[in-house]
Design a protein around this nucleic acid. Sequence first.
DNA 1: TGGAATACATCGTAACACGAGGTATTATAG
DNA 2: CTATAATACCTCGTGTTACGATGTATTCCA
Lengths: 106, 106
Amino acid sequence: MDIQLKRGLLDVCVLAAIKNEDSYGYKIIKDMKPYLELSESTLYTILKRLETADMLKVRSVEHNGRLRKYYHITSAGLKRINDFREEWKEMVSIYQFVSREDDSNE
Amino acid sequence: MDIQLKRGLLDVCVLAAIKNEDSYGYKIIKDMKPYLELSESTLYTILKRLETADMLKVRSVEHNGRLRKYYHITSAGLKRINDFREEWKEMVSIYQFVSREDDSNE
DNA sequence: TGGAATACATCGTAACACGAGGTATTATAG
DNA sequence: CTATAATACCTCGTGTTACGATGTATTCCA
C-alpha cells in the first residue's frame, strides 16, 4: 500500500489491534499483518506517540524472565477510533469524487 | 480531516480534479474544496511533484494579459487514479478491522 | 552450533503539508 | 477615490512522520 495512505491508518490500526484485548509489540505486528504491514521501528515509534497522547497505557509483565510490555487502550484511544469512523464518511465521498466518470455531457 | 489521512488522498484528488477537464491552480482548489481543503502552498508543491512524476503536463495560456497554467493529466496520472481505486479495497478491509466489535465471545 | 523467532529499542534520513511571506492584476464595496 | 477582496502564481523554513539500519538479548529447533 502507498506509504502516504498508510500514514493515516497506522495509528488507528494499532489502537484497533489492542481495542478488544491488551497486547504487546510483537503480537500487534502479527495481528495487523493481514491488513497493514509495518516494521518494528515504525510500531515502537507509534506506540510511544500514542502513549504520549494518552491514547494507551503501558504495563510491564514478566514473561519467561524478561519484561513484556502490554498496551491497554484508554478512553482517548477509543475516541480516536470513533473519530476515524466519522472521517471515513468523508473519505467515502472523496473516493466517489476520485472515481466519478466524465460528467461533461450530463 | 486528520492531516495524516489527507496525505494519502491529496495527490489523487488533485489528479481527479483535472481528470475530465484541464484546469489551473486556483480552480483546482475551489473544485476540491467540498471534498478536501488545501492551501495554495500545498497545491503548488503537489503540482510540481506530479509534473516531475510525469502524471500531468503543464501548458501556459495567456488570460487577461497574464499567464495561467493549465494542467493536463497523462496516462501515468490516470494509472495513479486506478491504483488508488485498487488500494481503496484494502482500505475498506482496514476500516472493517478498525470498526469490528469485540469478538472475544464468538 | 547456528539461525530463526521472539521482544525490545534508538538514530538518521527523506518525504511531505503547511504557514508565512512575496508579486501582481482586477473587481468590488465603502 | 480608495481600500480590500478575489484571482493567480511562487518560495522557504519547519515540524511530523515511516522506515531502514542497527543493536541487545533470549529461546527454540534443526
